[in-house]
Design a protein around this nucleic acid. Sequence first.
DNA 1: TATAACATTGTAACCGGTTACACAAGGTGC
DNA 2: GCACCTTGTGTAACCGGTTACAATGTTATA
Lengths: 331, 331
Amino acid sequence: MATIREVAKKAGVSVATVSRVINGTGRVKKATEEKVLDIVKQLNYTPSSIAVSLNNKKSKTIGLLLPDITNPFFAELAKGVEEVAKKKGYTVILCNSNGDLQSELDHLQVLEQKYVDGIILSSHTLTYSHIEECKIPIVSIDRTLDGKLSSVTSKNYEGAMLATRHLLKKGCERIAHIAGPQNIVTARKRLEGYMAVVKDKSWYSDELLVYGDYEIQTGYEATLKLLNSTQKIDGIFAGNDLMAVGSLKAIYSLGLRVPEDVAVIGFDGINFSKITIPELSTIAQPIFEMGLLATDTILDEIVNNKKNQSFHELSVSLIERDSTKKSRCDY
Amino acid sequence: MATIREVAKKAGVSVATVSRVINGTGRVKKATEEKVLDIVKQLNYTPSSIAVSLNNKKSKTIGLLLPDITNPFFAELAKGVEEVAKKKGYTVILCNSNGDLQSELDHLQVLEQKYVDGIILSSHTLTYSHIEECKIPIVSIDRTLDGKLSSVTSKNYEGAMLATRHLLKKGCERIAHIAGPQNIVTARKRLEGYMAVVKDKSWYSDELLVYGDYEIQTGYEATLKLLNSTQKIDGIFAGNDLMAVGSLKAIYSLGLRVPEDVAVIGFDGINFSKITIPELSTIAQPIFEMGLLATDTILDEIVNNKKNQSFHELSVSLIERDSTKKSRCDY
DNA sequence: TATAACATTGTAACCGGTTACACAAGGTGC
DNA sequence: GCACCTTGTGTAACCGGTTACAATGTTATA
């Protein structure tokens, strides 16, 4: 790897001049510039971004801290983040925390040491106190952190109401909810949205509410539990798409049909929600866009050097597919 | 962020001594060491990894260049890579190429500029000539690059034979193959494995072979095409799990049953292969382990500074699930 | 023609670490 | 008491860039 001094020597100029040519800063005579560029090409010179970083304390790198990259939701998010970052000349460091607090803290420390310019994080264990002394801009995805950090979230409460009402509209007369882990704010909001719609219904009872952990398996188990109860359940609103998938499997394994016997709707709108049989109705978050927006936000804070604490709450939309298409009730 | 000079001044020693204490290099009097450590803690000092990198030309970072992080195969791989990397004190830069050659070349250049210590890549468009002048160790996943680079692959040919024979054993009498894109070596190998098993069968004809692009949608379309042909097909070996999923949907949409009418088997063993209804039989690659192994390999080459060109070819295994469980043919 | 104003380029300090080398102090052997 | 080794520590160069400032050459103005 050629250095700027080699280029300078070979071109018969000083390093300052080479630097000026490379960065377009300061005035350089046309002839000199051409000579330098020629040598640059000859030596295939590219400036070491390490050395550059040491100077301006900017690494052109952002950290992306996620619970689990194999979760399609986060994978799509990551893709969005990487896309914008690359377009703007930034690079993305991927950190997988498995939702473990200590792992998250470790990652954060490494990211700081590496001079990342900003961090996009999705965590449900970190609290603001963990990161308040961190001077790097941070954008939180999926939740607001005490309102102290910029965030990109979506309308979980409204989405949950939308889902529940959709089931009602489809003629469901007893709607259960498989709630996500209640330490996760999205799960709480979705539960609240469900409750807001059903709490006054004559048929509502506590038994219609079960809990899972946002993974397929617990959606499966929760559904078995629900359908084995005495009440006849004909609609299930799963806290996220993965649990909804588990739900479909459970219903299938009991010999029941979706949506004829039980209609199912999920939440998230991951790509995989349309590969199930039947295809899954869901409340879609604009996942990819959330990634784009989070990246735009963090880059904005980076270049303008201000934590402007912007809170973006994106809209969700109902995607109706076969898992709720009860023809007998269709309008 | 405190610097080493601040620590040195406050501790009343030279920067060299602080460096020695931090890195445990050279001899330092016990009392001095304690004083330094005390100040380090007081100032919450951590060495700038940028500055360190500038010295030793090592960034403790590896690049991971993938076609698509939202493909579960690559997501699982990435998780494995990140896990080992983190354990060994390395950080992972995620690059998403969308399979685009120019994008891959761009990413590679950035990675070089950032002094990454090694690169793990999965590409089907790059050729060895694109990267031969790159002095950073590279490990290729999924394919060997002219045998010039270390690689981690799995037994695609054998796996394809395994899949096809499995369908035979299950009593299938006319087995089709949805091949992946033939510019991808895994797809070619799998096709060869299939051909090796079926080419001498009396029922074999070219119409049993159709092509997809490893995505769900093409699996769907290919299956419709197959099942609409005159021949009665009762077994489909899809080139990967995603296409197999599309296949299941197509079969379902035609009102046929899996596996009773048509048995289906995929390839890859992504987690999502067990969320389908019915669950998908597949030839499982040890995806996560491939990530681990690739990372071990690259780290080995990094620390020992040798491109030892090791070629790992991992075994695959048949996972039999419902999509091939024709009870009438079971042994 | 002298001088101000501007264009072009070079020198060297700096970013924050590491480390070769120098050097001082104390200990050991003869 | 002298030569020599060991231990502990500091100085300064270096990694590869950027940039403030100085220095030079060139042109325009009075």
